[in-house]
């Protein structure tokens, strides 16, 4: 099945669920909880009435106001991360029913259409848990620094317009630039593993997210100037060649970023860069 097809398949199934959703039902949330780093995890279940158009975040809000488990014991409100609630900020990533995705766009009707259906929520698996469903994604942002994901402008003073660009090229950059650093692509990637020791971040696999951002900046008229630096980093340990081409990243990316194309493009770039370096005899 091609990517487009598998997305469509998913969407069809979810749409079908939406059609059969029962009004006024309650569903069960099974949530993996943890009080803090180094503390043990535990599961708690909550029975939550479904509002019209309700999603995982609105359900978590309901739980925050009524933190009572299905066993009837009072517990603490669940801690989670969110922001925009419209799938552009990238904050609310969680593992839902075993798969990573944004929780704000996760409609209850699509996942638990019938009375008593269950939804499991777990924190992302590749980042250290801060508490409950909230994880620390500092490494993901650190990786953007690794590939110098910026345009090296001369300063913020007025110096005229930027480079001209064809609409096709703009569309291509825009598609990459929509990445919201949610980390879904990393959580689903078999090659990207949890690394808690910050010292090791720079040599651990960087993941599709930063590889794709490197490509974005290599494609900008001025951003290109740092191409060499980016390829050096991506040729090194934890760089693009650590990718095992499982292509899960592109399947789970909520923004539909063409990640595998970016991996190919950056692969080509590093190859060419290495050959050039070899013949120019640079260090």
């Amino acid at each position: 099945m091609s990517d487009a097809e598998s997305h469509a398949f998913d969407a069809d199934m979810r749409r079908a669920n939406r059609k059969k959703a029962v009004e006024g039902r309650s569903v069960i949330f099974k949530i993996k909880r943890c009080d803090g780093p180094g503390k043990p995890s535990r599961w708690e279940s909550f029975k939550v009435p479904v509002e019209q158009g309700g999603n995982v975040i609105s359900s978590l809000k309901w739980i925050a106001a009524n933190p009572i488990t299905t066993e009837g014991t009072k517990t603490t409100p669940v801690v989670w991360d969110s922001g925009c609630l419209e799938e552009v900020c990238g904050a609310c990533t969680m593992v839902i029913n075993g798969r990573v995705r944004q929780s704000c766009s996760c409609l209850i009707d699509e996942y638990a259409p019938l009375e008593g259906d269950a939804i499991t929520l777990e924190p992302m698996s590749k980042f250290p848990v801060i508490r409950d469903l909230w994880v620390d994604r500092a490494r993901l942002f650190h990786n953007l620094t690794r590939v110098k994901a910026w345009v090296p402008i001369d300063g913020t003073y007025n110096m005229g317009a930027g480079p001209k660009e064809t609409p096709e090229h703009q569309q291509m950059r825009y598609a990459l630039s929509e990445c919201m650093s949610c980390g879904c692509c990393l959580d689903a990637c078999p090659q990207f593993t949890k690394v808690e020791d910050e010292e090791k971040w720079d040599t651990s696999f960087i993941g599709a997210h930063a590889i794709s951002q490197a490509r974005l900046f290599n494609e900008h008229g001025t951003g290109k100037l740092l191409k060499g630096d980016r390829y050096e980093e991506l040729a090194g340990a934890g760089g693009v060649s650590d990718c095992g081409n499982a292509q899960n990243c592109v399947k789970v990316c909520p923004k539909g970023i063409p990640l595998t194309e970016s991996i190919g493009a950056v692969g080509r770039g590093t190859t060419v860069h290495a050959i050039k370096q070899f013949f120019q005899g640079k260090e």
Binding site: D3, V240, S241, C243, N245, P258, T260, E261, I263, G264, A265, V266, G267, R268, G269, T270, T271, V272
Partner: peptide, 12 residues
């Protein structure tokens, strides 16, 4: 893909 011979989805 690794060597960068196929980039676009189509090519891959």
């Amino acid at each position: 893909i690794t060597w960068g011979l196929t980039i676009s989805r189509k090519a891959q």
